[in-house]
Design a binder for these strands. Structure first.
Length: 377
DNA sequence: TCATATT
C-alpha cells in the first residue's frame, strides 16, 4: 500500500495506540476497512453487529445518500487493533448476505484524487472477458475494480457494457483519451469510454422503482425469491460469485476452522411439506417476535464456533440483526449453542427449514425458533 | 445509457 507516503516517512508508533504521523493525523491504514456490496436493507446497527463480532471497533459507518437516506451499499469499519482488521478481511470477505456477496478490504486513504475515477464502457465485443477488459485498461493505471454486465436471462452472456474503476481520477481521464472511440484489436466496432454516472444522481423513476422493490421485499416476503435463495444453499462456499472477486465462503471457513468440508449432498432439499410442518410445529410454543425480530436457537455448534459462523449460515436467508455464540465463562469455548435474530418471519422460517439438520463439519445442527422457557408450567 | 468503492 502507498498509504505510508501520504502520512510521511516519519510516523511514530505509540505502544498499544494508533500510529501518529508527524503532521498529527492518525495512520489507520492497517485498521480501517471499506466494505462493499452490502445488502440494500442492512442498517447501521446490523453493520456494527456484524463487524463488531470480530473485535473492538473504533468507529464504523454505513454510508447513506445525503438526500434520500438510502444506503449506498458500502461502509467503513475502523478497528482498534490491526489484527482484528486482518481477521475481518479473512473471515468476512466473501460473506453472502441475502443476494449479495460482501467485499472487505483495506480502505485507501481518503483523498480527492481517488474520487470520480469510475468509467462506463460500452460497445465492447461480446466475446471480451473481464480479464481482457482489464488488460486493455491497465496500461493507464491501477484498476481497483472492474465488471462486465451480463444478460440475466441467458445467464452470463455479455451485454457489451461494463465498468472500470481506477485508483486515481487522472488515470481514468487518460484512459478516456486513449481508448474512447478506439477499436480493441480485432474488434469490429469502436468502444465508448466515459465517466460513469454517480450513484447519488439517480433519476426519480429509478428511485421510486428502488423504493418499491425494497418495500415489496419487506412486506410480501421472499416467496418469489425461493428458487434464488435455495439455489444458494448447496453453493454455500462455492459456486459462481455474482459480484466478482471474492472467494468461497463456507468451505473456506470450514477448512480453516475445522479442516472439514461440508457435504452439499446432505443438505436437506426444499420441500413445502418441510416448511409447513416446521412452521405449524413452531407455532405451538413460539414466543413471537421478541423486540427487534425472531430469535432462532442453534444447537450442536463446535467448541471452536464463533459469531462469523452464524453470519455465514444465516446471512444468505435474509435480514439478520444479531448473532451470539454462548461461551463458557472460564474456557471461552462455545458451549454448543448460539442464537440468531432475524427481522422477518418467513426468512427466519426458511433459514430454519434449510439449516436444521445441516452438517457443519462433523456435526449435525439443530435449528429452531427459540422457545419460551417461562411459560412451560 | 449504468452496478455501485472513499466517510
Amino acid at each position: 500500500m502507498e498509504t505510508q507516503v501520504s502520512n510521511g516517512p516519519s510516523g511514530t508508533s505509540l505502544p498499544n495506540g494508533p500510529v501518529i504521523s508527524t503532521n498529527g493525523s492518525t495512520d489507520d491504514s492497517k485498521t480501517n476497512l471499506i466494505v462493499n456490496y452490502l445488502p440494500q436493507n442492512m442498517t447501521q446497527e446490523e453493520f456494527k453487529s456484524l463487524f463488531g463480532s470480530i473485535g473492538e471497533i473504533e468507529s464504523c459507518k454505513l454510508v447513506r445518500d445525503k438526500i434520500t437516506g438510502q444506503s449506498l451499499g458500502y461502509g467503513f469499519v475502523n478497528y482498534v487493533d490491526p489484527n482484528d482488521a486482518d481477521k475481518a478481511i479473512n473471515t468476512l470477505n466473501g460473506l453472502k448476505l441475502q443476494t449479495k456477496t460482501i467485499k472487505v478490504s483495506y480502505a485507501r486513504p481518503s483523498s480527492a484524487s481517488i474520487r470520480d475515477a469510475n468509467l462506463y464502457v460500452s460497445g465492447l465485443p461480446k466475446t471480451m472477458s473481464q480479464k481482457d477488459m482489464e488488460q486493455l485498461f491497465s496500461q493507464y493505471g491501477r484498476i481497483i475494480t472492474s465488471r462486465i454486465l451480463v444478460d440475466q436471462v441467458t445467464a452470463g452472456i455479455s451485454r457489451g457494457v461494463g465498468f472500470i474503476r481506477f485508483d486515481k481520477r487522472n488515470e481514468a481521464e487518460e484512459a478516456i483519451k486513449g481508448l474512447n472511440g478506439q477499436k480493441p484489436l480485432g474488434a469490429a466496432e469502436p468502444i465508448t469510454v466515459k465517466f460513469a454516472n454517480n450513484p447519488s444522481q439517480k433519476t426519480g423513476q429509478a428511485l421510486l422503482t428502488q423504493l418499491y422493490q425494497t418495500a415489496a421485499r419487506r412486506y410480501t416476503g421472499p416467496l418469489h425469491h425461493q428458487t434464488q435463495r435455495f439455489s444458494m444453499i448447496p453453493s454455500l462456499g462455492k459456486g459462481p460469485d455474482p459480484n466478482n472477486s471474492s472467494k468461497p465462503i463456507l468451505d473456506n471457513l470450514l477448512n480453516a476452522s475445522y479442516g472439514i468440508k461440508s457435504s452439499p449432498t446432505l443438505f436437506p432439499r426444499f420441500s413445502p411439506i418441510t416448511i409447513d410442518s416446521m412452521t405449524s410445529l413452531a407455532g405451538v410454543n413460539l414466543t413471537g417476535p421478541t423486540g427487534a425480530g425472531w430469535c432462532i436457537f442453534v444447537y450442536n455448534l463446535s467448541p471452536e464456533a464463533d459469531e462469523s459462523v452464524l453470519w455465514q449460515l444465516f446471512g444468505p436467508f435474509g435480514a439478520v440483526t444479531n448473532v451470539k455464540v454462548i461461551r463458557d465463562f472460564t474456557t471461552n469455548k462455545c458451549k454448543g449453542f448460539g442464537f440468531v435474530t432475524m427481522t422477518n418471519y418467513d426468512e427466519a422460517a426458511m433459514a430454519i427449514a434449510s439449516l436444521n439438520g445441516y452438517r457443519l463439519g462433523d456435526r449435525v445442527l439443530q435449528v429452531s425458533f427459540k422457545t419460551s422457557k417461562q411459560h412451560k408450567a
